[in-house]
Design a protein around this nucleic acid. Structure first.
Length: 556
RNA sequence: UGCCCGAUAGUAUAAAGGUAGUACAACUGUUUUUGGUGCAGUUUGUCUAGGUUCGAAUCCUGGUCGGGCAACCA
């Protein structure tokens, strides 16, 4: 099952902790999204890490919504986050909210005020920023820094009671205005926000800041390993300071490098812009790196989990190549996707020695990679077929193993045909390819003794159904849009979506199952789009197949 | 220009002082009723300068490069 792999640095820490008996060997992690956007593939890395760690070490993982900023948060996001985690294949132990702890956090704050370790500051945001100094110069105290504990307690209570407007006062920790770590220069703990909160409604008008909410929530839940991304490294001393002063359960914070994928962006702010400015159709647009977008595109949970496993966990910045994600996708889909036939750019193939008006039902296994073929479906065959325009060449080069005058191919799951003629329209475009077939060459009972190099896909003209097909390309034209000059949106790929309105598909595809992956033979992996209806089928191309011939053509 | 984090093939990630390995990508060949898949193979790497050591990717020192930190965001 689990292949041999060396431990990542967090696993090493956990194994050390278990060996030394820390927390009685207990492992409790948490996944702490802020419900202000949809989850993306970068979150998937964190989800796989946090849930994976717990699974591996016989622990549990809480889902905790970090909802301390009512201005940006919404239940719409809560619902999508829940759905995405489940879809990825993980079960959380408890579903919790930082807002569940507002009473407790308030009491913690009072405790620090009582110890002389926090004070209410009336200064404006600008004054506080100015008084913080710079990385090279120490900060200076604001006028309120020396208020008595009693006065601070009183003022803090009045803040809570709503006596002051937004921004009038804040509560700050009293630590060290000269600290080389800017986060230790009397960081803000609470701010006033007369805003409606998605869970606590109008109960509160003061809200804790991240630094005074996250670590406290971890501690309340007795999280043993609080895993977050690199940008929180400078927050760690503060995380530890609050826990120490409060004398509460010592959760420990560990940081890893977030995932970056090339040819896309990964910040929620940027993704939100793409949605709001209609560069994509929504958070679940199949071109988006969101979990919901990847799901709609046809990615499988297993492929994403495998991807997250392969990219590893370390502390150095990284940009992963999209080709690795695609490899993991194909690896899974090759084993699970049912094979079907569809002709995207059709020309007609006429079998001149096949009885006119006759048709027969052929059999095609669902998946040759599976032991038993994973079942099979019926495919109607007749004298008139649609084939792919690119599978015929009037003057074929030597290594072109498809149709051309005098050339033979196998029709997948059917007969071997040989081309003897073709027709063109007035513009010189090929319209018909005329062939003869070998009756003894039928798939599964071939006694012809003829062997051909190429096999092509087809759909019977009289039996074909149609569907809209959406082909996707990378959303951005450059590897790292965020590091380019100017607005990242200048680098959007204008050809990221191509729609083919009427593609001929084999009849069985009218029974396509939502959420299932299909391989259109030689054309790629496809899945039903959520826009699809029984009247109008719509398929998304999840990924192309690897194409050695395209490379060959490119070389010459 | 204070503090913090990091640096191993094109991209990621291992090697805990003792043969620099794995995956993806690229390239060869082979198999194949998908120019897919599978299989076999090839190419490519320790940022730099010193030091410690029989021996350094690993330890030490200096430098270089990349990233982060001065939101009433998380």
């Amino acid at each position: 099952m689990s292949e041999e792999r060396s431990l990542n640095f967090i696993e090493e820490i956990i194994e050390d902790d278990i060996r030394s008996g820390k927390n009685d060997g207990r492992v409790l992690t948490r996944f702490p999204p802020e419900p202000n956007g949809y989850l993306h593939i970068g979150h998937a890395k964190s989800i796989c890490l946090n849930f994976g760690l717990a699974q591996k070490y016989n622990g549990k993982t809480n889902l905790r919504f970090d909802d301390t900023n009512p201005a940006t948060e919404d239940t719409e996001y809560v619902d999508s986050i829940r759905q995405d985690i489940h879809w990825l294949g993980f079960e959380w132990d408890k579903e919790l909210y930082s807002s569940d702890y507002f009473d407790q956090m308030y009491a913690f704050a009072q405790m620090l005020i009582g110890k002389g370790l926090a004070y209410v500051d009336d200064s404006t945001a600008e004054e506080i920023a100015a008084a913080k100094g710079t990385p090279t110069e120490p900060g200076t105290p604001t006028p309120n820094r020396s208020r008595s504990a009693e006065e601070n307690l009183q003022l803090f209570q009045e803040m809570k009671e709503g006596k002051y407007p937004d921004g009038a006062k804040v509560l700050r920790a009293k630590i060290d205005l000269a600290s080389p770590n800017m986060h230790m220069r009397d960081p803000l703990m609470y701010r006033i926000r007369h805003a409606h909160h998605h869970r606590t409604g109008n109960d509160w008008c003061i809200y804790p800041m991240y630094d005074f909410a996250h670590g406290q929530s971890d501690s309340i839940e007795k999280i043993t390993h609080s895993v977050c991304t690199l940008e929180f490294i400078p927050h760690r001393p503060l995380y530890e300071w609050f826990i120490e002063q409060l004398e509460i359960f010592p959760s420990k914070q560990y940081e890893f490098a977030r995932l970056n994928l090339n040819y896309t962006v990964m910040s929620k702010r940027k993704l939100l812009q793409l949605v709001n400015e209609n560069h994509v159709t929504g958070w679940d647009d199949p071109r988006m790196p969101t979990i919901s977008g990847l799901r709609r595109r046809g990615f499988t949970p297993l492929s994403i989990r495998n991807f997250c496993e392969r990219i590893g966990v370390a502390k150095r910045e990284n940009i992963i190549e999209y080709s690795l994600l695609e490899f993991c996708l194909r690896e899974d889909l090759n084993k699970s996707a049912w094979r079907r036939m569809a002709v995207l750019d059709p020309i007609k193939l006429i079998i001149t020695n096949y009885p006119e008006g006759k048709s027969e039902i052929l059999n095609g296994e669902n998946n040759p990679e599976a032991e038993d073929g994973d079942g099979s479906r019926e495919i109607p065959f007749s004298a008139e077929l649609w084939i792919e325009r690119e599978d015929f060449m009037e003057e074929a080069p030597k290594k072109f193993f498809r149709l051309g005058p005098g050339l033979s191919v196998r029709l997948k799951n059917a007969y071997i045909v040989k081309c003897h003629d073709f027709r063109k329209d007035e513009n010189g475009n090929v319209t018909e390819v005329h062939c003869t077939y070998i009756p003894e060459s039928k798939s599964g009972s071939d006694t012809s003794g003829v062997s051909v190099k190429g096999t092509i896909h087809w759909v019977s003209v009289g039996h074909a159904k149609t569907a809209e097909i959406r082909l996707y390309d990378r959303l951005f034209q450059v590897e790292d849009p965020s590091s380019e000059e100017g607005d990242f949106k200048n680098y959007i790929n204008p050809q990221s979506l191509k729609i083919i309105p009427n593609v001929f598909i084999e009849p069985d595809l009218t029974h396509a199952i939502p959420g299932k992956g299909y391989q259109f033979i030689r054309k790629g992996y496809f899945t039903l789009d959520t826009d699809s209806t029984p009247e109008k089928l719509v398929f998304n191309r999840t990924a192309t197949l690897k194409d050695a011939w395209a490379k060959e053509v490119k070389k010459n």
